[in-house]
């Protein structure tokens, strides 16, 4: 019963591993999507997890239901996310921004409820979810599933290492895409719309159409996140896609600094490092009796995550909306 008994080496290894694991990739991709939505186009998407789910299900169903090849399956996943964006965006993007927030949070939950419903069981396998899709992807993987890959103490099994590698490649491609778009005239229009839609319209820009494009693009990148999740966990379960996940993505985005190309990656790595560190330390403190179980037991340690996310989200949004990287000067220009 002492601090000395805490295995800091284990905790650090775990934290660093998680910071670069496929989960961090999932969060990074979802947050890159959110960054396009909120950071550049000013769209309030409170249901990003719905896009993530659409990507995952689109890919999974392509194989379990339609027996497509894995590459086509990825395309279908992207199309799923794009269609979801169209359904949500077409009615709401002409309205005030809070309508999109309300509709997205509701629609994300609709996706989860429908996917886990008994009616859809023949297709989505209900709450158990899809898992037969993984075979064709395993066949593509150059890594042997049982072998351990990694650097030093940070290691992955081959089956997951594939998801990690594919995931980070997707992150890199997405960042390149965002960087290129944002230095193009397209990005200029989108940023102008974020700041003042009427000004953009008065200059002949079809704000509605650009917002729809941004919603689709960010949603599709979020959908890629869902696919990485499916690869890494080798399963697509509806109850992975719960509503709070969207707000973890939001925190990841705000941590890095809204409207910065690199922000989501930075935020995801920091987020996963911190959460893993705090939770593992907490668990060990409980195990060592340093936190009495009358106050908190190990299952409750996992709930701390939500407190931290909730508090960090609120505090950062108010006191440091520009994130770790953002400059104060730029925020001061923000006509709040």
């Amino acid at each position: 019963m002492s601090l000395a008994a805490i295995d800091w080496g284990f905790i650090l290894t775990q934290s660093v591993t998680q910071a670069f694991d496929f989960n961090a990739v999932v969060y990074a991709l979802a947050a890159i999507g959110l960054n396009i939505h909120f950071g550049y186009a000013g769209l309030l998407n409170f249901g990003q997890v719905g896009f993530v789910a659409m990507g995952a299900y689109g890919m999974g169903l392509s194989i379990t239901l339609w027996q497509l090849n894995p590459f086509l399956a990825v395309v279908v996943g992207m199309i799923f996310a794009a269609i979801f964006a169209l359904i949500l965006g077409l009615p709401t993007l002409r309205l005030r921004s809070d309508y999109l927030a309300i509709v997205t949070i509701a629609a994300a939950e609709i996706v989860r409820l429908i996917a886990r419903s008994t009616v859809m069981r023949p297709i989505t396998r209900g709450a158990e979810g899809l898992n037969e899709f993984i075979g064709p992807f395993r066949d593509l993987s150059p890594f042997s599933p049982g072998q351990i890959y990694g650097i030093g103490p940070i290691e992955w099994r081959g089956s997951q290492f594939f998801a990690v590698v594919v995931g980070w490649i997707l992150v890199a491609l997405s960042l390149l895409l965002v960087a290129q778009l944002m230095r193009s005239p397209w990005g200029r229009v989108v940023k102008a719309i974020r700041e003042d839609e009427d000004a953009a319209r008065a200059l002949g820009k079809n704000a509605y159409w650009y917002k729809l494009q941004a919603l689709i693009l960010g949603g599709v990148i979020g959908g890629l996140g869902g696919m990485v999740q499916a690869l890494g966990n080798a399963t697509v379960q509806p109850d992975f896609f719960v509503a709070p996940l969207t707000f973890f993505f939001w925190l990841v985005l705000i941590l890095g600094g809204v409207g910065r190309v690199w922000a989501p990656v930075f935020g995801a790595v920091v987020y996963w490092f911190m959460i893993t560190f705090i939770q593992n330390t907490g668990r060990q403190l409980v195990d060592e009796g340093l936190i009495p179980t009358s106050i908190m037991d190990t299952s409750q340690i996992d709930q701390i995550r939500f407190w931290i996310v909730g508090a960090a989200l609120a505090l950062l949004m108010v006191f440091r909306p520009q994130g770790f990287f953002g400059s104060r000067e730029e925020m001061a220009l923000d006509a709040r």
Partner: peptide
């Protein structure tokens, strides 16, 4: 409606 977070020349190019 000057777009305050774009530079002056970006405003013009828009």
């Amino acid at each position: 409606k000057a777009l305050t977070k774009l530079s002056v020349v970006e405003n013009m190019k828009l």
